[in-house]
Simulated scan of single mutants.
Amino acid sequence: MRPRIGSRALLMETDGRTAWARRYKDLVALLIDDLGGMAGLTELKLGLIRRAATLMLSCERLETDIAEGREVDLDLLGRLIGHVRRVAETLGLDRAVKDVTPSLADIVANSANPHHNAARKAACAPRQPATVIEAEPAQALHGAPEPIAEAGK
């Protein structure tokens, strides 16, 4: 029987309530989701997922130290990142490029939307140069200046 994601079996000697323990469980769950869920995972892949989560968590802890101004062994961070990449490749996780090109149906639907067309035209319209407003002298805004009292009078 495989352990549940949130079970103590994944966090052997901890109670699982620290922020880092919760983050570890989240990373494991996210990696399992990336691989299509628990159904298709072998024990070996589950072990690699836990190792990847551990390595990723170690990277995040070092990055937190950097953000808080503490000294960090950048060589160690670089090696950890390389290990994460290699484990991810072994698991079959890749850095796939996401296609964000709209489909023809999206383009047609957006062109039929009058609000979309108005916003697009406004965004594409040439901009008018800013009008410069001359500031009035301070006297005109605040009245005549008060006379300065002379010392000794």
Results as ranks from 00 to 15, higher is better:
S103K: 11
E63Q: 11
L62K: 03
L104H: 10
E60A: 12
L48G: 01
K98S: 08
V100M: 12
R51S: 05
G37T: 10
L91D: 03
A96H: 09
L80N: 00
G40L: 09
A88Y: 03
L91A: 04
I49C: 06
R51V: 06
R70M: 14
I81Y: 06
L41R: 11
D94N: 14
R50H: 04
G92M: 08
A53F: 01
I66R: 08
C59V: 14
T42I: 11
L76V: 09
S58Y: 01
A53M: 03
E68K: 15
K45P: 05
A39Y: 07
E60G: 04
I66S: 03
N110P: 01
N110G: 10
A52Q: 03
K45A: 13
M56L: 08
D34G: 00
V87Y: 00
D75G: 14
L48C: 11
D65A: 13
L41Q: 12
I107N: 07
G82F: 01
T42Q: 06
R70D: 13
D73N: 15
G47D: 12
T54D: 14
I81W: 03
L91M: 07
D65L: 09
A52P: 00
E43T: 12
L57D: 02
G40E: 10
L77K: 02
G36T: 04
I81R: 06
A67F: 07
E71V: 12
L76R: 08
S58P: 02
T54G: 11
H83D: 13
G69Y: 05
K98A: 13
A109L: 08
A96D: 10
D33W: 05
A105C: 09
A53K: 00
G69S: 06
G82E: 07
T42D: 08
I66A: 07
E63K: 05
L57H: 02
M56E: 00
D34K: 00
E89F: 10
A52H: 01
G92W: 06
K98I: 15
G69I: 07
T101N: 11
D33A: 12
A67R: 15
M56P: 00
K45R: 15
M56K: 02
S58A: 14
G78S: 06
L77R: 03
D75C: 06
A53L: 04
G47Y: 11
L41C: 10
G37M: 08
L62N: 04
L48Q: 08
L57A: 08
H83I: 03
G37D: 06
I81T: 12
D73R: 11
N110M: 14
D106N: 13
R70L: 15
L104W: 08
E60Y: 05
L41M: 13
A52R: 00
D75Y: 10
L57P: 01
L46K: 07
R61M: 08
E68M: 13
D99F: 05
A67Q: 12
L76W: 02
I66H: 05
C59N: 06
S58D: 09
E63L: 05
G36E: 05
A67Y: 05
L80C: 01
D73E: 14
E43S: 13
L35D: 03
L74I: 08
R86F: 14
A88L: 11
N113L: 06
G37W: 07
S103F: 09
I107R: 15
K98T: 12
S58W: 00
D65E: 14
L74N: 08
E68A: 13
L74T: 07
V87A: 03
D106A: 15
